[in-house]
Every structure is written in C-alpha cells, then in structure tokens.
Amino acid sequence: MARNKLEPDSLSSEALSSRGGPWEAQLRKGALEMAALAALWNGRLYGLEIIRFLEQHSQLVLAEGTIYPILNRLKTEAMLTSEWVEADAGHPRKYYSLTDAGRQRLRLMATAWVDFARGVDNLLQPVLTNQEPTQ
C-alpha cells in the first residue's frame, strides 16, 4: 500500500502559500524578511510594489498585513530607509531603500541561506526521488 505516497500537489508553491501549521508560519515569516530586503536590491519600492515583486518573482503569496510590520522593524534596525514620495496617483507613497547595513545583512543572509538550503536539499533528495518508501 502506498500509504505514505507523496502527492506532488502538496509541494507546490500554491499549497505552501495556503494556511499551514505554526512551523510554516514561522518559516515564512523568517524568509519574508530576507525576501523583502532582496526585493529592494535593485532600487527603492513602496509596500505594494514589494508585495507584487515577491508574487511575481517567487510565487511568495503573502498575507499583506505581514509585510508592513516587517518593513517597519527593518527600518528601526537601520536596514532600510524610507521616504514619502508624492506619486502620480495623487497621494504620497512610502518608498523603502536598502541602507549599506541592509545590503551587508542581505549578503550574509543570502550566503547562509544558500548553504542551509543546500544541506536541506541533500536531506530531502531521497524523499523526492523515491516517491514511495520501501516497505
């Protein structure tokens, strides 16, 4: 019996973005901070642009309420600066940019993340290649 058969659907990014356990919320929250910094690597963006950027480039669909407190915290930690810019839309938007410290932090995070992910990938390789556990 393929009792433990992995359903490919359960690994899709769509499934990951839906509600999961508390561990998943923690993981996403932690990764989100790095993702927010990464979104600003190429220049300043405002909150909604960051959300759209993450959706387009990583399928990280997020509850929008989580990104603003994260940006707020990163700003207090001097990883980001912000400025209000009067937009064409007729109302000002709060644009965020990376500070030097933010760039530095993101570089360190990226290196650590890639090492970490590589290790986890190695661990998960058997899970993904052998679809059914040998009984």
């Binding site: 509850a63 603003y68 707020n72 109302h91």
Partner: peptide, 28 residues
Amino acid sequence: EILREIAAHIRDSFEAGTPIDTVLSRLG
C-alpha cells in the same frame, strides 16, 4: 506614519481593482 502607509496601501490596492473586502481581509 503606520496609519498613513496602510491607508496608502488600501487606496492603491483598491484603485488597482481589488475589491475592498479582499484588500482589508488580506491585511488581517
């Protein structure tokens, strides 16, 4: 400052065509 930013977010999302209920529920 937080309120101003959230208000701008709601306005931008709404003007981009997202129904207001969806905008607000996504914020929590």
